[in-house]
Design a protein around this nucleic acid. Structure first.
Length: 483
DNA sequence: ATGTAC
């Protein structure tokens, strides 16, 4: 299959590009890229645009396949991809969600100013590392009985609150209130449940982390105020997903879907793009299991917030104050949503893989307090660089089904990064920059080195210039906990 | 991302 070259890409604006449907006969819609030209030159190097073209062939796909400026190669779909298929007969493709179902980010806002805690930062990072289990395959303190597991998969974050690991108010500030109603635990295999039984409250490895930051800059005073953000305020970023449970759900159902495809006469240009009709038995079974795994992930981030709150109290005592959830947003998930396509409201199955929901003001799904200003979007940068809080706009609905980018986006493969980076030296460099890194392995540090990632500032400039999100605040890290 | 791998 011919590789996408720059000459195949039409420039629409400075930050929007299109591969026309005519590029390949099997495309059902065009493929669109949100990126500044400098980012595009990087993006074109790997297979992510070919994957984007493949996505444009999915049965029932609407409008266009999209990638965000932080795009890179993934399993089947590119990471940073968005695709909406018609409900209920269009395709559902596990590759469009990813192996880490409901990987996502949560931001906790503290009542403390950075200058008040500088002397305690080292102790705080050590305490966070102690309270939050991390690393490949690592379990935590909680052991879920089979009946607990059923409840976690059905109730999501609510389970944590009912069992003393969370605060009720948190629920209002989680996408979908931390629970998808279509979840069905009977479609999650015993193996998946077994892997998840001791991993609640753990971050895992790879790009997952818990990070302490402070607000360095406010771009929109009014919205920042509504979000409860002030200059120099300390915040905590949590990035993790559904751990071994979600991975097993993906593994199990990808296998089933791959062998069911021929029954529905579906052919895709890449076997990793395996899909079935959403309303088929296999499609429904995957979707219900995916929802259950998503609930596990929301429960996981709630329990991790509890661990962060415990560390906070242990270090700051009663001077620590509350840690409030600003928002918790998924970036590996499929959702049934209504979007305006060709002037009519249509229900679609929105696949977001390495892309976050970014709903604008007056969206029904938002908590009341964010109704006038739009959904908070949390964009973590790479380790040791800045992160951003953005707000959703109505333009995001017009552009890519109310979606936005999810982070800096990988530039080098894990392997290339490991080869290039001296991890102990990097840890020391970050320390000199004022960032404490607590990590289980140097391998993890090397793979997550800033040079392995795109420039998050350019990614954020793209989405803010294109109008699909509004810059609200910039966050600077001071402590990072990794696997 | 993941008890790195049919």
């Amino acid at each position: 299959m011919r590789k996408v070259q720059k000459e195949h890409i039409n420039k629409i604006t400075d930050y929007l590009w299109e591969i026309p449907q005519s590029f390949r006969q099997d495309m059902k819609v065009p493929a669109r890229i949100l990126a500044f030209e400098t980012l595009l030159d990087d993006i074109i190097e790997d297979r992510s645009l070919n994957q984007l073209v493949n996505v444009a062939t999915l049965p029932g796909i609407k409008k266009a396949s999209f990638v965000m400026p932080d795009v890179h190669e993934g399993y089947g779909f590119p990471i940073g991809g968005v695709a909406a298929t018609s409900y209920p007969h269009g395709a559902i493709s596990p590759g469009g969600i990813g192996y880490d179902i409901n990987c996502g980010v949560r931001l906790l806002v503290s009542q403390i100013q950075i200058e008040d805690i500088k002397p305690q930062l080292e102790n705080l990072s050590k305490e966070l590392y102690k309270q939050i289990p991390s690393g490949m395959g690592k379990g935590g303190q909680i052991r879920l009985t089979p009946s607990d597991m059923e409840e976690v998969l059905v109730k999501g974050a609510e389970w944590a609150i009912e069992n003393g690991y969370g605060i009720k108010e948190d629920l209002y500030n989680i996408e979908s209130n931390g629970k998808l109603d279509s979840a069905d635990p009977s479609l999650v295999s015993d193996m998946a449940k077994k892997r998840g039984a001791n991993q609640l409250g753990t971050i895992g490895s790879g790009n997952h982390f818990v990070e302490v930051d402070f607000v360095e800059e406010i771009y929109d005073k009014h919205i920042a105020e509504v979000y409860g953000l002030k200059k120099n305020q300390v915040v905590v970023l949590i990035h993790t997903g559904s751990r071994g449970l979600g991975h097993q759900v993906a593994t199990d159902h990808i296998r089933i879907i791959m062998s069911a495809m021929s029954k529905y006469n579906i052919k895709v240009p890449d076997r990793e793009l395996a899909c079935v009709p959403f309303d088929s038995r296999e499609g429904q079974n995957y979707f219900k299991a995916m929802c259950a795994a998503a609930n596990y992930a929301w429960c996981n981030r709630e329990v991790i917030s509890w661990e962060v709150r415990n560390a906070w109290e242990n270090i700051f005592g009663n001077k620590g104050g509350a840690l409030n959830v600003l928002y918790d947003v998924a970036h590996n998930i499929a959702k049934i949503e209504t979007h305006t396509i060709e002037n009519t409201d249509q229900m679609v199955i929105v696949h977001r893989k390495g892309a976050t929901r970014a709903f604008g003001p007056k969206s029904k799904e938002l908590p009341k307090k964010y109704n006038e200003v739009g959904q908070p979007i949390i964009i973590p940068g790479s380790m040791g660089t800045c992160s951003y809080v953005l707000a959703g706009t109505s333009k995001s609905h017009e552009t890519a089904f109310g979606s936005c980018c999810h982070g800096a986006g990988r530039r080098l493969s894990r392997r290339a990064a490991k080869k290039k980076v001296n991890a102990p030296a990097l840890k020391e460099q970050l320390r000199e920059k004022g960032i404490y890194v607590e990590a289980g392995s140097f391998k993890g540090i090397a793979e997550e080195a800033p040079i392995a990632y795109k420039d998050v500032n350019m990614v954020v400039e793209t989405v803010s210039n294109s109008g699909i999100a509004k810059k609200i605040a910039k966050l600077i890290p001071v402590a990072v906990i990794k696997g």
